[in-house]
């Protein structure tokens, strides 16, 4: 008779013989953190918000329709007709705000603890990239419900980008995909929100975590090059 414990043990041994998974897990977990580096779990909570955004975002994308004719109605369907659709959209909206708040708090901790100093300058730059991408998520995601607030906030927001000297007109047209906020803007923002930004953010995130893992957390009580 098949014994589930023995089967799973056999399977694990089979994998372990080919790729040293246990050694990888051990190497990633068996590190230490300076007790004085009070992280307040800010970066980890930002990561958690990103996971929530990925999950709820995929769920929303299954029903959302990115055209000016149907976007608003598909949001109404999500909010009123689907089971827990209102909950998933509301969690997505709240988690977006929390993600930005925790990004900023995490940044403040790094500044006040001086954790960006040598040799961690690259981690800081990658982290700033993550912050900009997160703000990009907020800017593109805000248009998608295609209600009055979304439409006019995007109109004004892209207009502000148009005030940049010399390249302003080009930037505004580029962001809008045309002269005005239109169907082209909606599909453009949707594509950036669900394809470009998630891939870019996931890539930078892996780099950020790898650097932290390799260098360890900075000890705020010790000075650089300790």
């Amino acid at each position: 008779m098949l014994n589930p414990t023995r089967v799973s043990q056999g399977l694990l041994a089979w994998i372990e013989e080919r790729i040293p998974v246990q050694a990888w897990i051990a190497a990633s977990l068996h590190v230490t953190i300076p007790r004085s580096a009070h992280t307040f779990y800010l970066g980890g909570i930002t990561l958690f918000c990103f996971v929530v955004q990925g999950t709820t975002g995929i769920l929303l994308a299954l029903y959302y329709q990115p055209t000016p004719e149907t976007a608003y109605d598909s949001i109404l369907v999500i909010m009123n007709q689907l089971n827990f659709g209102w909950l998933i959209r509301s969690v997505h909206a709240w988690s977006a705000n929390l993600m930005i708040i925790f990004c900023i708090l995490h940044l403040l901790r790094i500044v006040l603890q001086g954790a960006y100093k040598k040799p961690r300058e690259i981690t800081w730059l990658v982290g700033m990239g993550l912050l900009f991408l997160t703000l990009g998520f907020g800017f593109t995601g805000y248009l998608l419900p295609w209600d009055q607030r979304a439409f006019w906030a995007t109109t004004v927001g892209t207009e502000i980008a148009g005030a940049v000297p010399f390249i302003g007109d080009f930037v505004r047209q580029f962001l809008r995909g045309g002269a005005d906020v239109s169907a082209a803007t909606l599909t453009r923002f949707f594509g950036v929100h669900v394809l470009v930004l998630p891939v870019a953010l996931a890539g930078l995130l892996v780099l950020h975590l790898l650097l932290i893992h390799q260098q360890g957390l900075a000890d705020p009580e010790g000075d650089e090059n300790e």
Binding site: M79, L87, S90, F139, Y142, P145, W146, D147, Q148, V181
Partner: peptide
């Protein structure tokens, strides 16, 4: 938060009528 303050939705976008108090996030 999601249960107490669900995400809102205003009227459908209308390119011919700007609402009062347009604000970004």
């Amino acid at each position: 938060l999601a249960a107490l303050f669900p995400a809102g939705l205003e009227e459908k976008a209308n390119a011919l009528q700007t609402p009062e108090h347009v604000k970004p996030e």
